[in-house]
Design a protein around this nucleic acid. Structure first.
Lengths: 152, 152
DNA sequence: GTAGCTGCAAATACTTTGCATAGAT
DNA sequence: ATCTATGCAAAGTATTTGCAGCTAC
């Protein structure tokens, strides 16, 4: 049985999940989109725009399963709603623009080391962490918006 | 007009809010409780247990106002629901036990400095940040629970 | 063939809002 | 007296679940 080079069905299958069409499409979306961080609603609308009508309930279920299978990771970003991103093994943190919502990623080994040290010193066995920086990005539109808000 | 030494009505009043009974009780709860981080529901139940029946809607409104007035700060802690804590001016980050939910606070100037540096380097004007470490605390019950879970 | 998956609709959890009444200054 | 706050109930968003039919293996 031959499979296309970029077939993600294997990734799904090796997580103990059946390689169904909705799952293949959802995973592919994360692999191909330029917008790395997507909410359930974002996924629903993206697929719909692509001609795939997949029920929201299914999307929520699949995102949860993918997170448990460590294909995706989940974040909250102070927004009260979850966003997911492709888990590519390498840990990283986030820098979020409060004006346009753009998210950049970074990883600072020194910060990682200090975190580990802090946890140890307090008798915690560190399992994971979330560091998000919020600010205003270099886009002039964002800076203008920020000024307008502070006047507001 | 005299007021008791620890009267928090002033704090409320100087934020442009009327010093009403619900507000006084809610702020006092944060000032006196040992559990620093409370959700709206937590506040509702604490006050109820104390004989104060204050509507949930009011609690949500007051928490939002207090946050805007910078008397409280809000966090999400990856839980999908907001928790608030007293804002005592000094910034700090959080260390959360994934087993018992206990939250410790810490502040590491070196991490703060590195964050600032990372934001600058990418042209972001840093406004705020959230760093939460998740792990298992030193309580033996938590460690046992962690082992049980990993056995699945 | 069968265990596991999907869609739908209903349920749940958290939070916000409209409106009439009550309260603070 | 006036402007604001509260309580209730209803609406809104985000997410989960029960169930009957469909699909991958």
């Amino acid at each position: 049985m031959h499979k296309p080079a970029s077939d993600n069905a294997q990734d799904i299958h090796s997580s103990g999940l059946k390689a169904t069409w909705p799952r293949i499409r959802i995973l592919r979306l994360f692999q191909q989109t330029t917008q790395r961080h997507l909410s359930a609603e974002d996924v629903y609308r993206s697929l719909l725009a692509d001609g795939e009508e997949i029920g929201l309930a299914t999307i929520y279920r699949v995102l949860t399963q993918f997170e448990q299978a460590r294909l995706l990771t989940r974040h909250y970003f102070e927004s009260g709603k979850a966003v997911y991103e492709l888990n590519e093994g390498q840990h990283h943190d986030h820098l979020v623009c409060m004006m346009c919502g753009r998210v950049e990623e970074f990883c600072d080994p020194e910060i990682e080391r200090l975190q580990q040290q802090i946890a140890e010193r307090r008798g915690f066995e560190l399992r994971e962490h979330a560091l998000s920086l919020y600010g205003v990005c270099s886009n002039p539109a964002c800076q203008a918006k920020a000024r307008a808000e502070s006047r507001g």
